[in-house]
Design a protein around this nucleic acid. Structure first.
Lengths: 203, 203
DNA sequence: GAGATCCGTCAACGGTGTTGACACAGCCGC
DNA sequence: GCGGCTGTGTCAACACCGTTGACGGATCTC
């Protein structure tokens, strides 16, 4: 499924591209990456991205089909948790929370905000669901014991998203003022129980 | 703090109102309630609300100051969980999840979507935080034992919001296809553990 | 009756994402 | 070499958004 999918101005085939086109495409993508990260999906306008790239706004749409498609092609829906999941299963809950609460990761925070805003659009939402299934559920569910492993991973992701929501979107003063280590321990353990519930039948 | 807080067209004092003004105000509020609930915050336009009320769009802003203020004055930030919290503390987790997963409550679903969209605006966000503190934290925290009761309630609310997010905004296919009773039990218990952790020192 | 205040209308502003009409440049087959 | 196709770019415009300013009347108070 190529870029535009539009009827009006059929975007050129990805293979047949001339140097000029490739250059401006790259410029637009760079500008989009920067502005989406800086200002979020809603805050970054197509006109702003075009200006940043030194290009006509119409050209952005022509090349990528829509703002939504440009976002999908530009912004990494992953939040970089791949390595976090690799470690031991017993402490993955706390590690996940600690990863996102690390103040040394402001980029993650902004990317989450941008993703949350863009998730209102269908294609982005679908991509995020696909990404959740691929990045979280697929590798984690087989490692779980007990019933409904896929569902439990999905619920754990929802729980994690709830915290990110509270921290980065809602900016709740209670949690903002709390000791990060307490949040990591408390909430991390709560996520952990969803993944590895203490089974009385198990040793 | 009255309606507009604006400089340009100081909204009339709430007390000094004439019948005509009151009537159109009510018409606008009704239309706003309807359209915000039907289409969400972003989907309902000021012009659409004005048309529904049979009124000039400018009049909406003049009377309420801004779309955001109209939303705050119109939509109930509560989701009707007051009665859910009143019951026994031991099962509040499952009751909360069951409340929102009840298919007989589509209104709640739409209201949550509208609230989530409007939460991008500062005043709505502040109101939601205030509402959380007042409706959830204040009545629930004193009933908890253990450390950091306020924080734990706030985190439980975040966890609940995570599920609503997954169900109503993200519309994750895994959870959508799952047995509601399993979700209620699994996720409800996870919330429950945040509120009433099984303390080994307690009987 | 005079003046302030409320009520309503209209046109417009600056912003958004997107589209259509057009001109130019480079590659293709003849 | 040359005509046509196609990629590339420009410009103005569309339809929508939230909001504002200027201006009539209507209504109330003094």
């Amino acid at each position: 499924m190529p870029y535009g999918c539009g009827v009006t101005h059929p975007s050129p085939d990805a293979s047949r591209l001339r140097p000029a086109g490739l250059a401006t495409r790259a410029a637009i993508e760079d500008a989009a990456r920067t502005l989406f990260a800086e200002r979020g999906f809603d805050g970054a306008s197509v006109r702003g991205i075009a200006a940043e790239a030194g290009v006509d706004p119409a050209l952005v749409i022509r090349h990528f089909g829509s703002k939504e498609a440009l976002f999908l092609r530009t912004v990494d829906t992953s939040l970089g948790i791949g390595s976090v999941l690799d470690g031991p299963l017993e402490s993955v809950g706390r590690r996940l929370v600690a990863y996102f609460m690390d103040p040394a990761r402001p980029v993650i925070r902004k990317r989450y905000v941008a993703l949350a805003q863009a998730a209102q659009h269908d294609q982005v939402r679908d991509e995020m669901n696909r990404h959740t299934a691929e990045t979280y559920v697929a590798p984690l569910a087989p490692r779980l014991s007990g019933a409904d492993p896929e569902l439990r991973v999905a619920l754990a992701v929802a729980q994690l998203a709830g915290l990110l929501n509270l921290l980065f979107l809602q900016r709740d003063p209670i949690v903002a003022a709390a000791d990060p280590d307490v949040v990591i321990a408390t909430y991390g353990d709560a996520i952990q129980r969803l993944l590895t519930p203490p089974d009385p039948e198990e040793a």
